[in-house]
Amino acid sequence: MNAELFLAPFLTGLGLAILLPLLGCYLRLRDEWLAALAYSHVAAAGALLALVGGLPPALGGIAAAGLAGAGKRLFARRLSGGASYALLLLGGWAVAVLLAANQPMAERLGHALFDGQLYFAGDAALWQVALGVPLALLLLRAMSRHLLLAHTYPDFFRIRGLRSWPTQTGFDLLAALVLALATMSLGVMGAFALVFVPTWLAFRRAARWRAGLLGALGIGVLAYVVAFGLALWLDQPFGPVLAGLLVLVGLLVA
């Protein structure tokens, strides 16, 4: 087995395995974990649309998810109670499946996006992650206190004159872009599994917020490393192996 061949995919996934559980903590704080599935599906649809239109799929995926994240607030009044995420999920899925069913090129990429074929990640994906992950981690750290304060004391947050757009639209946009980036490499369900399960497990036991973040990070990275080796050894697509492993860990630990 050529180790160099798998270095770029491994590092690409590792960067995302560090970022996604931490993003999941803030999505769960806001009770918006469904956003992970919604943005992933929109990103998949955007990537397929770009492919059909002769544009780079990654660009299409990131642009579609970014538009969904930034535009969600425009419909916030009409789409309360999490309806926006359900509609984005359904819309993204419908567009992606229809494109895959009618365009042979889109069918192949569609399978890769939904299966999660991390091993095909190349240097371009690694560069996107190498630049995007540290930036996203810095932004999350900068937003953290305001996200927590806006959730626990929304009135206190407002009357202190703290600007709401970085914590509302800014976070939506960040989540959408991160999930688009992750979907391109880990696949729709692989990305969702890393957002949802580590946070869910860590939040059950942690006593403090920081312990919750570290717990989610540890579970996410450990599960990723084991799943990467397991999928290679069994010669299986990465996404389902990661999701299956996390489900198993979740059932055993919870």
Binding site: R28, L29, L148, H151, T152, Y153, P154, D155, A202, F203, R205, A206, A207, R208, W209, A211, G212
Partner: peptide, 11 residues
């Protein structure tokens, strides 16, 4: 309003 902290690791 009671801060919604159920299920969150907030001390």
């Amino acid at each position: 309003d009671v801060p919604p902290v159920a299920g969150l690791p907030l001390s």
